[in-house]
Simulated scan of single mutants.
Amino acid sequence: MTPPPPPARTSSAPPADDARCPCLSGLVYGECCGPLLRGEAVAPTAERLMRSRFTAFATSDEAYLLASWHPSTRPEALDLDRDVRWFRLDVESTAEGGPFDVRGVVRFTAHYRDAGGANLQQETSRFVREAGRWLYVDGT
């Protein structure tokens, strides 16, 4: 018998600074994605921006997702499904996207659970760095 899915998230509160970061970098939230989502720091690489965006999905931080999206492709608004629980991120590969690059590509698999059970999203995302800030452009 398959166990039932965990209850849907009813809060979009970020984790405590000493809790494991949702992006699974191995760091705690306060040393990883927390400062980025709070606007206290900028992502030094495309991969770090992608990890912080995963964390923003996991914590339902629509404002951060929109702010980290390139204006040329950014939607006017987001309508995140609060019943989706993002729980694992696997970074498959990166191309460019370092601190001195202006473009980067990150391929990843994001795992989530919804009312239908466990699922995954595989994406190759493109990023650009403008005025010292990495921005998400699009993904396939």
Rank of each mutant, 00 (worst) to 15 (best):
P3Q: 08
P3F: 04
P6Y: 08
P6E: 11
P6T: 07
P7R: 13
P7N: 07
R9E: 08
R9D: 02
R9M: 08
T10P: 02
T10K: 10
S11R: 15
S11L: 13
A13R: 14
P14N: 03
D17H: 13
D17P: 04
D18W: 14
A19W: 15
A19C: 12
P22R: 09
C23L: 08
C23H: 02
L24H: 11
V28A: 10
V28G: 01
E31C: 05
E31P: 01
C32N: 06
C33D: 03
G34W: 02
G34E: 04
L36W: 01
L37G: 01
R38S: 15
R38D: 13
A41G: 04
V42F: 04
V42P: 03
V42C: 09
V42T: 10
A46M: 10
E47P: 02
E47L: 13
M50G: 04
R51H: 13
S52C: 09
T55A: 15
T55R: 02
A56K: 05
A58I: 04
T59A: 09
S60F: 15
D61P: 02
E62A: 15
E62V: 12
A63D: 14
Y64P: 01
L66S: 10
S72H: 07
A77V: 10
L78F: 10
L78P: 05
D81W: 00
D83I: 00
R85T: 05
R88E: 12
R88Y: 07
L89Q: 02
D90H: 02
E92M: 13
T94V: 15
T94I: 15
T94F: 12
E96S: 09
E96Q: 13
G97Q: 06
G98S: 14
G98D: 12
F100G: 01
F100H: 07
F100E: 12
F100V: 09
D101F: 12
V102I: 07
V102Q: 09
R103C: 04
V106Q: 02
F108N: 03
A110E: 01
H111L: 13
Y112I: 01
G116S: 12
G117C: 11
N119T: 02
L120Q: 08
T124K: 06
R126T: 07
V128Y: 03
R129W: 00
E130P: 06
E130K: 14
R133Y: 00
G139A: 15
G139N: 09
